[in-house]
Simulated assay, not measured.
Amino acid sequence: MTQEPKDWLEAELLDTLDEEYENELEDAFLSEEIRRIYREKRPDQMDRRLYFRELLRLQTELIKLQDWVAHTGKKVVVIFEGRDSAGKGGAIKRITQRLNPRVVRTVALPAPSDREKSQWYFQRYVPHLPAGGEIVLFDRSWYNRAGVERVMGFATEDEVEQFFQDVPEFERMLVRSGITLVKYWFSITDEEQQLRFLMRIHDPLKQWKLSPMDLQSRIRWEAYTKAKEDMLERTNIPEAPWHIVPANDKKRARLNCMSHLLSLIPYDEVPHDDITLPDRVFNPDYERDVLSRDLYVPQVY
């Protein structure tokens, strides 16, 4: 039976909300004890209905931003930095969720290879920079050198110092080339990171996020704090300032980051031609072939 347009639209909207609920079922496998502790520590969680309403509103604006960037040929780079479990990935997921991956893409590079270690430090990042009409989100970036590489001893103090000498000019070069460069630091407290690590330990769907390096970051909390403060002080330049996102509340952090990003770029709504669905051409001589049942996915559900 053919659905009425109203029924079809309602089904599509419900499907959209289902996607949001799937993303938000983050404590489905948590132990009751961990869940209780987290709720006690965070009694002022944002109202769920308000969160979804604002999320969809901001995602609508991000589509307008995306269209404007593609239409004007602008180039945008957004850097997401912060401690492990600070919520960078969750914010990036909500930003890109409804956008065109041909226009907006995420870069999350693995540890450098031996060959990359011998290159100019910024070289491995340059190929991922945007062309005209593109937005690139870096889930961690060249600031690895000022953070994890420095704290974990993967870079010498001379290499770190050279990085601090080079990065302001490197970023000024990017800006001079026409790139809009936005830098976010997601900030969480010691207590909040501990709670999130405990949740990952008790959540089978998130244990993969907890690496040996993450565990080391707990031990070296103070060293990371000193490295972060040094980094923010020495790389906060007028052409590409840092923006700190208080991230103890994940929902508010995501919305605040999205709202702030939209406020930084003077985009306009791009006019679009009306879209009309053409009529299908029917060929009376066409007969659809009957395909083998072996080709179909089993109907388990």
Rank of each mutant, 00 (worst) to 15 (best):
E4L: 14
D7P: 03
W8A: 15
E10P: 07
E12W: 07
L13G: 09
D15V: 04
Y21W: 08
F29V: 01
R36S: 07
Y38P: 01
R48L: 08
Y51P: 00
L55P: 14
L56A: 07
E61M: 12
D67K: 12
V69N: 13
H71N: 14
V76F: 06
V77A: 15
G82P: 05
G87E: 02
K88W: 04
G89M: 08
I92W: 05
Q97L: 15
R98L: 09
P112W: 00
S118C: 04
F122T: 08
R124G: 05
Y125F: 15
P127I: 04
H128P: 02
P130Q: 01
G132E: 08
I135T: 01
V136P: 09
V136N: 07
N144T: 05
G147A: 14
V151D: 10
V160D: 04
Q162M: 05
Q165E: 13
V167K: 07
E171S: 08
T180I: 09
V182L: 14
Y184L: 00
P204H: 11
K209P: 15
K209G: 14
L210A: 10
S211E: 11
E222L: 05
Y224M: 04
E229G: 05
E229F: 10
D230W: 06
E233T: 13
P241Y: 01
P246H: 13
N248S: 08
L255Q: 11
C257A: 12
H260S: 12
H260R: 07
I265H: 14
D268E: 15
D268Q: 15
P271C: 03
P278N: 03
D279G: 13
S292R: 01
R293V: 13
D294M: 02
L295H: 05
L295Q: 13
Y296T: 15
Y296D: 15
